[in-house]
């Protein structure tokens, strides 16, 4: 039953609430249609702050905040037996040198064994071994169709900015496959071996290394 002072409409809506809602809608419409309130002075201040933020980020990167495959001290990482035997065209997944460093070893048609990190250098998706792509097969990232050369780990297509970090592999006489070291993106195995030797035995001079223990 509705009395003379009842403000509720017969359909159950409160006129005051409806008026408030309409006012809110009008205010929102005004705000959205208004010109941007960010002045050039505000923009200048914001961009200067962004510049400072980029400086801080760069310092963090150079100081080593980002995880880098193969960053574990060479002396602390023992060799890892990843497979008793590997057939041609076959791949095996393992973690090396750290337990969170996902890696893959592949035996190629000429019986050489190569190993790479399986974390794509673009956005860290998992990289897959595609035996039937390309001439010798290739490493393929399905997220954005990045691809890497199976011999060198270099980028052959797609958006990845760097080649895959390598895992240095060795195959012993009994056919077992071992991970024996790591190399950074686009770093040669020789340079990586010299670097790790320098970490294990500082001051050692090796004639074949460009500068022993160097970066």
């Amino acid at each position: 039953m509705t009395g003379p002072n009842d403000t509720t409409d017969p359909d159950g809506t409160d006129p005051a609430a409806a008026a408030r809602a309409a006012e809110r809608d009008a205010a929102l419409r005004d705000r959205l249609s208004a010109d941007s309130l960010t002045s050039r002075r505000d923009y200048l201040r914001v961009m200067t702050t962004v510049s400072g933020g980029l400086l801080v980020g760069s310092i963090a990167v150079s100081a080593g905040v980002l995880h880098r495959h193969g960053d574990a001290e060479a002396a602390e990482v023992p060799e890892l037996r990843v497979a008793d035997r590997l057939a041609r065209g076959e791949a095996v997944l393992f973690n090396y040198p750290g337990e969170h460093d996902r890696a893959m070893a592949v035996k190629l048609a000429d019986d050489s064994v190569v190993g790479y990190s399986t974390v794509c250098t673009h956005l860290a998706c998992g990289v897959l071994w595609k035996e039937h792509r390309g001439e010798e097969g290739e490493l393929y990232c399905p997220c954005h169709e990045g691809s890497f050369d199976i011999r060198t780990g270099a980028v052959t297509g797609g958006p990845p900015p760097r080649g895959l970090p390598k895992v240095l592999m060795a195959e012993r006489a009994d056919g077992s496959v071992w991970a024996v070291g790591t190399a950074y993106s686009d770093e040669t195995a020789r340079h990586a071996a010299c670097r790790q030797l320098g970490a294990i035995r500082p001051g050692t001079t090796v004639p074949s290394c460009p500068h022993s223990g160097g970066k």
Binding site: V61, G64, L66, P161, S185, D186, E187, K215
Partner: peptide
């Protein structure tokens, strides 16, 4: 800089 650091440089 990120690329260089990731490549060990």
């Amino acid at each position: 800089g990120v690329d260089a650091w990731m490549q060990g440089r």
